[in-house]
Simulated assay, not measured.
Amino acid sequence: MLQTLEETISRLAILDRDVLAIAWLSLRVSLTAVSIGLAVGIPLGAFLAVAIFPGRSILVGLLNAFMGLPPVIVGLVLYLLLSRSGPLGSLGLLFTPGAMVAAQAALATPLVAALTRQVIADAEAHLGEQLRSLGLSAPHRGIALIYDTRFSLVTTALAAFGRAISEIGAVLVVGGNIDGHTRTLTTAISLETQKGDLSLALALGLVLIGLVILVNAVAAILRAHAARAYG
Rank of each mutant, 00 (worst) to 15 (best):
P139F: 06
V101K: 02
S166I: 01
D197G: 01
A39C: 14
D179K: 02
R84P: 08
V34S: 07
H126Q: 11
H181M: 08
V215D: 11
I52L: 09
L78H: 13
I52H: 14
F53N: 07
I14C: 12
V112N: 09
F53D: 05
L76C: 06
E6I: 06
G142V: 05
L93F: 15
L27G: 12
R11I: 00
P70D: 04
A113Y: 09
A229N: 03
A217D: 07
T32N: 04
V171G: 01
A227K: 12
F161S: 00
A170C: 13
A220T: 14
V215L: 15
P97V: 05
A49R: 09
T96P: 13
T187P: 08
A121G: 15
I120E: 02
G92L: 12
I14V: 15
A13K: 12
G86E: 00
I22S: 02
R11W: 06
A226E: 13
I73K: 09
L191H: 00
A102I: 15
D18S: 10
A51W: 11
T186N: 07
S199M: 09
T8H: 07
G98W: 13
M100P: 07
L115T: 01
A102E: 11
G92N: 11
R11P: 08
L222H: 13
L136G: 01
S199T: 07
L153G: 08
V154F: 01
I221Q: 12
S137P: 08
I165H: 00
A108I: 02
L204V: 02
S190Y: 05
I73L: 15
L127A: 09
L127V: 00
H140R: 13
L204Q: 06
I36Q: 04
A23G: 04
A102S: 14
T155N: 06
T32I: 09
S57N: 14
I42N: 09
L172H: 06
V29T: 05
V29R: 00
L78V: 13
A121L: 14
F161I: 01
S83F: 00
L185R: 05
L222F: 15
D122Y: 11
V29I: 10
